[in-house]
């Protein structure tokens, strides 16, 4: 049985801008059909350039891009038909209303007006924007504008949905609602590629993660394997009463950030019970515990920081 083509297959993709900036230095990337894929990286790493090339907003310098088996160089329109894009910044006409904006996008994708109208209603309702359909876009709240861009990207029912920082500047409640929505879209069979600064977001949503830094892919694996690479986690323990000078935690790297807050590094192969046992021996009671940082964030810093140092030295 023949294997269905990847949602995205990128080979040796490079981009050098007119001013000589090498934004991408020959990256390879595969995104399987139905995947929820996270593309992470610091500012200026090459995420937006990669997305720009895939969506034909940026001209590539070299390499190939195939989307569901269609080569971007040979059939650009065919590739575009497969993709829906939610850009980082609001890029709709602020003087138009959601109904116009989404209907027009449907028209650009060749969807006849009757069907476009039905689809527009469906996605505006899904995004909770139907009641605001004739309100000028500039009058919508930030969260509504983000949802409008998602509705616009979904109206032609793309097989691949790309979201560039979809929850940047969005409050927690709306972020969670957006996550739920994206999970639903993915469960319905749409491949999702997400770039985000919120590593918690990637950890919660993505099954596969690639980390890009200085135009190179520095990590590309499934989330489980990626997190397995994290050898040490830092926990923050809140103590019921001020801790004595000697906590009896020999062999553990630890420090007190204040009298009742303990930070401790614990290797993955060691049990947390040992720590609690040692603290109990000192009559120290722990009232609560949390990860110091998001696990992925720690790994991200580990992967990206060395490059930053090199950049600083060069």
């Amino acid at each position: 049985m023949s294997r269905s083509p990847s949602a995205l297959e990128i080979r040796n993709l490079s981009k050098t801008y007119g001013d000589g900036t090498e934004a991408l230095q020959g990256i390879d990337l595969d995104v399987e059909d139905g995947e929820f894929f996270g593309l992470l990286g610091p500012n200026g790493a090459g995420k937006s350039t990669t997305i720009g090339i895939i969506t034909s907003l940026v001209n590539k310098t070299g390499g190939t891009v195939r989307c569901f088996g269609i080569d971007l160089d040979q059939d650009q329109a065919g590739v575009k038909q497969q993709i829906g894009l939610v850009p980082q910044e609001f890029n709709f006409n602020q003087f138009e209303h959601p109904l116009q904006i989404v209907m027009q996008q449907a028209g650009y994708y060749g969807i006849p007006r009757k069907l476009a109208r039905r689809r527009t209603e469906k996605y505006l309702r899904q995004m909770g924007l139907w009641d605001k359909r004739t309100t000028k876009a500039r009058m919508l709240s930030g969260g509504m504008k983000r949802r409008l861009m998602i509705a616009r990207a979904l109206v032609h029912e793309p097989r691949l949905l790309i979201l560039d920082e979809p929850t940047a500047g969005v409050d927690i409640e709306l972020r969670r609602a957006t996550w739920a929505l994206l999970e639903e879209v993915n469960q319905q069979g749409t491949t999702v590629i997400l770039t985000t600064h919120y590593l918690e977001e990637a950890e919660a949503l993505c099954r596969h993660i690639a980390i890009i830094d200085q135009g190179r892919i520095v990590e590309n694996t499934d989330k489980k394997s990626l997190l397995a690479k994290l050898n040490i986690e830092t926990f923050v323990l809140d103590l019921q009463s001020p801790a004595p000078a000697d906590l009896g935690l020999d062999g553990y790297h630890h420090c007190l950030t204040d009298a009742t807050t303990l930070e401790i590094d614990i290797a993955r192969d060691r049990s947390l019970n040992d720590v609690f046992y040692l603290l109990s021996c000192q009559n120290i009671e722990v009232t609560s515990m949390r990860n110091k940082a998001n696990r992925l964030e720690e790994l991200f810093v580990n992967l990206v920081e060395p490059n930053k140092d090199l950049k600083g030295q060069s």
Binding site: Q76, K80, L85, N91, F92, N93, Q104, Q105, Y108
Partner: peptide, 16 residues
């Protein structure tokens, strides 16, 4: 205006 507001991208990413 479409270029300035970047809504020209709506057209550019479409298969038109």
């Amino acid at each position: 205006s479409a270029k300035f507001q970047r809504n020209v991208e709506e057209m550019l990413i479409s298969p038109m």
